[in-house]
Design a protein around this nucleic acid. Structure first.
Lengths: 150, 150
DNA sequence: TGAAATCATACTGTTTTGGTAAGGATTCCA
DNA sequence: TGGAATCCTTACCAAAACAGTATGATTTCA
């Protein structure tokens, strides 16, 4: 169970797309500028997102990416697993269970499973739509107070 | 937020200790044999556990380690944080929040926070006492069915 | 055709991980 | 008193993961 920059960048990019669903394809370059994500790195992330069926790509000039499903049907878990692989316990999974020589008869394994399930539940119950809406509200109130300090 | 072999090994060792509270100090060597943990690596882990006040050490021949508090007062979170440091989101924490240039005005940050809180809650609501008890039950039923296959 | 954009693959410097090595310090027991 | 057992400390190391960069091919529009 690991959450790295891939998840962070990927989620920012997906929220960005969700905020612009009716504007046609959005280029990776545009998103990388807006979100402060290294351009070439973001390109790689979009490969994963596309292969997972979360975004569609339009190649060539004026191309870009767009959500392939409604934002209400894409969860944060979808994004994370597209980029980081299946979200399993990093400890005591698969072969590692053999470490303690107990297999199923290991009391510790249950704790890691419950922790992973708890994360999955949080990520799976949050949709891109709700995050995009929240971000728009934040942007509006921020704009009302003036530009963001950097 | 990362759970590595340190947490897995450390928790196994602590459960081992909790199952032997009334037997005086238990040596690292003994635990490493029983749990299949590299001996010298386990020694390092005990340094962290001792500095966190979770175990007490007795040096010299017939020395070893013992729980410093009742097993009912030690949670899995205590063990994990003693070994891995404070359990915070690995994404969008501290300086990383500056990545998106939004600071507090970032909708994504809330998701990572909720995920981390969910893990903390699971780990903090599980005590060594309950795990030790569960392990003893598993060991008994396993012993009744014969030796564990390896 | 040329610019804009995705797609694919390979490379790289840094950090983390999961140990190992070597020896020192302390305590018990014969 | 001298081992032997045990914890303590520090240093070292190889492999993997991470966070990008680099290069170039391919596709599309104007």
């Amino acid at each position: 169970m690991r959450l790295t920059a891939k998840s962070e960048y990927g989620l920012l990019a997906m929220i960005d797309l969700a905020c612009r669903i009716d504007q046609g394809p959005v280029s990776a370059r545009e998103i990388s500028d807006r979100q402060g994500i290294p351009a070439k790195y973001l390109e790689q992330l979009f490969v994963g997102l596309r292969k997972a069926g979360l975004v569609g790509a339009v190649r060539g000039a004026h191309g870009g990416f767009a959500l392939e499903r409604p934002a209400t049907d894409i969860t944060v878990l979808d994004v994370v697993e597209a980029l980081e692989g299946s979200l399993r316990p990093t400890v005591c999974d698969g072969d590692r269970a053999a470490v303690c020589g107990r297999g199923d008869a290991c009391a510790a394994a249950g704790v890691w499973d419950r922790a992973t399930s708890a994360v999955r539940e949080v990520l799976d119950s949050t949709t891109l739509a709700s995050l995009a809406r929240a971000q728009e509200v934040l942007d509006e109130s921020g704009a009302a107070r003036g530009p963001v300090e950097r």
